[in-house]
């Protein structure tokens, strides 16, 4: 299983991320999102950030999770390389995501920036489970 792959899109960035579990899929999706912004090889993990999110279903949780990474990138001026995700059921009505993100503060001398991701779109956003879990995402750049 490849962790993620980028697909052709005229104006924006489209990717699919995979996982044996929903948590692994979300971790790989975060890595795909971030690789489109900054070359991961240029990032050293020096700090960690904790994320806790709640949503009605996995799709909403996935959307919030990716939005949160863009938000943290901009507001913390940090770049991320590791994404450890845990999911748990929160009662019968909602799901919770607990994650630890590893990275460091932006260093313009060292970090090789690629695209500016403005936002995660809802266009053709979706999750499927066949042999493995798969999420499809289109980023507005």
């Amino acid at each position: 299983m490849i962790p993620f792959e980028y697909l052709e899109h005229t104006a924006d960035i489209k990717f699919r991320a995979y996982g044996k579990t929903p948590a692994e899929m979300l971790s790989n999706a975060a890595a795909a999102l971030f690789k489109s912004m900054v070359e991961p090889a240029t990032i050293v993990v020096k700090e960690t950030w904790k994320v806790e999110l709640k949503a009605f279903d996995l799709e909403d949780l996935a959307y919030q999770w990716l939005c949160e990474i863009v938000f943290l990138f901009e507001t913390e001026s940090a770049v991320f390389a590791t994404f450890s995700v845990n999911l748990e059921q929160d009662g019968t009505e909602s799901m919770r995501l607990l994650a630890e993100i590893g990275g460091e503060r932006i260093d313009l001398e060292r970090h090789a920036f690629e695209n500016e991701v403005k936002a995660i779109t809802r266009h053709k956003f979706g999750i499927k489970k066949n042999e493995v879990w798969c999420i499809q995402v289109i980023l507005d750049v």
């Binding site: 005229t10 924006d12 809802r122 266009h123």
Partner: peptide, 9 residues
């Protein structure tokens, strides 16, 4: 016009 999300660009 080209491919966007929601509306086309």
């Amino acid at each position: 016009a080209h491919l966007g999300y929601g509306f086309p660009i």
